[in-house]
Amino acid sequence: MIVVTGANGQLGRLVIQGLLQKLPAASIVAAVRSPDKAQDLAALGVQLRQADYTRPATLDAAFQGASKLLLISSSEVGQRVPQHRAVIDAAVRAKVGLLAYTSVLHANSSPLGLAAEHLETEAMLQASGLPYVLLRNGWYTENYLAGLAPAIEHGALIGSAGGGRISSAARADYAAAAVAVLTSTQNLAGRIYELAGDSAYSLSDLAAEIARQSGKAVAYRNLSEADYKAALIGVGLPEPVAGLISDSDVGASKGGLYDDRHLLSELIGRPTTPMAVQLAAALKAGA
Score class of each variant (00 low, 15 high):
S204G: 11
R165D: 01
L145T: 10
Q50K: 13
A66S: 01
Q17R: 15
G269N: 13
P131K: 13
A169F: 07
G164L: 12
E122N: 07
G9T: 07
T185K: 13
Q64S: 14
P274W: 07
F63G: 02
S109Y: 01
M275V: 14
E239N: 02
L148F: 06
L244K: 00
G162Q: 13
D247R: 00
G97P: 08
V179M: 12
Q186W: 01
T121Y: 03
A285N: 14
D89H: 03
E153Y: 01
A116E: 11
S248I: 12
S167G: 10
L14N: 00
L148R: 10
I233R: 14
L41Y: 03
A146Q: 13
G159I: 08
A91E: 02
L206R: 05
A276I: 05
S34A: 14
S73T: 15
V81R: 13
V250S: 02
L263A: 13
S34G: 00
A100F: 09
Y101G: 01
D205Y: 05
H118S: 12
I28Y: 08
V179W: 08
G138A: 08
Q10I: 01
G6Q: 04
T54G: 07
S75H: 10
M275W: 05
D249L: 09
A156C: 12
L20A: 10
M124S: 12
A115T: 03
I72H: 09
H106V: 03
V241G: 00
Y144C: 00
G97T: 11
Y201R: 14
Q126T: 13
A149I: 11
S246T: 05
G251H: 01
S253C: 10
V3W: 03
L264W: 05
G243F: 07
P271S: 01
E225R: 15
L223Q: 12
M124R: 11
Q50D: 02
A196L: 08
P24F: 12
V87N: 03
K229H: 13
N108T: 13
D173P: 10
V104Q: 09
E266Y: 03
S73C: 10
Q64A: 15
A100S: 14
S253P: 09
V87C: 15
M275Y: 13
N187V: 13
G215A: 04
Q79A: 12
K22A: 14
G286F: 09
V15F: 11
A116R: 14
A116I: 07
A226G: 02
K95D: 15
G45P: 04
I210L: 09
G215N: 09
V77D: 02
A7P: 07
A176R: 12
V92H: 05
V277Q: 15
L98G: 05
T58E: 06
A177Y: 08
Q79Y: 11
T273P: 01
S34N: 14
I245N: 04
T272G: 00
V104L: 11
I28A: 06
G78M: 14
S103G: 08
A287E: 13
L237Q: 12
A189G: 04
D173H: 09
P131M: 07
H84E: 12
L11D: 05
G129T: 07
Y101N: 02
L148H: 02
Y53R: 07
G255T: 07
L195P: 01
A217W: 03
G147K: 00
P238Y: 10
G78P: 10
L244N: 04
K37C: 02
H262Q: 15
D36I: 03
V179F: 06
N137M: 12
A252S: 14
A57C: 06
N143T: 11
L23S: 08
A281P: 01
I245E: 03
S109G: 10
